[in-house]
């Protein structure tokens, strides 16, 4: 991994304009020109390319890899309508649904659509995807946030 995270954060600290309560405030400031870089999704450039026909955004690639954010649809164990739930999940996996996910939710679909991914999704896909189990994430969270706060509080 090279440098330890606290050292990396400390080296970065004087380049960080600000931290906001959530992603949307940060992205808003970024679009207003307050910062040149923003912590966002690797699919953000694809949004600007497709929805706004603006090719002027790029995602920086990190060689260690990019953490995956997964959004799920699931069947509740205690449901009274298991057949309906199964039918809905099956529907979610059809090509009709999966093919609209990239340009509505701006995320990768679970099943690659027959027609392939829209422009920008393949070309800017990070080479390495990282995934942590909930247990691993829970164990890492406190020290990671602590190190980050510590470094940026100076």
């Amino acid at each position: 991994m090279g440098m330890r995270p606290p050292a990396i954060w400390q080296a970065l600290a004087d380049n960080i304009v600000t931290v906001t309560p959530g992603w949307s405030e940060a992205y808003g400031l970024f679009l207003e020109g307050e910062a040149d870089l923003v912590l966002s999704y690797s699919t953000s450039p694809a949004y600007h390319l497709i929805a706004e026909e603006d090719p002027g955004f790029v995602a920086l690639e990190m060689e260690e890899g990019h953490y995956l954010q997964v959004e799920v649809a699931a069947k509740v164990a205690s449901t009274d309508v298991p057949d309906l739930a199964d039918a809905f999940l099956a529907f979610m996996l059809t090509d009709a649904v999966q093919s609209v996910i990239p340009t509505t939710n701006w995320m990768y679909p679970a099943v690659t659509p027959a027609a392939g991914l829209p422009e920008g999704f393949e070309s800017m896909r990070p080479a390495v995807s990282l995934f942590l189990t909930p247990e691993e994430a829970a164990a890492l969270r406190e020290p990671a946030i602590g190190a980050w706060r510590e470094a940026l509080s100076r």
């Binding site: 600000t18 931290v19 706060r149």
Partner: peptide, 27 residues
Amino acid sequence: SFAVALILGGGPRATTLELALYQAIRF
């Protein structure tokens, strides 16, 4: 105040009690 302090304060060095509360409750 918390959003104003955090955004314009430039990050965690501008942590207010309200922000610490927000972190404790939300995250």
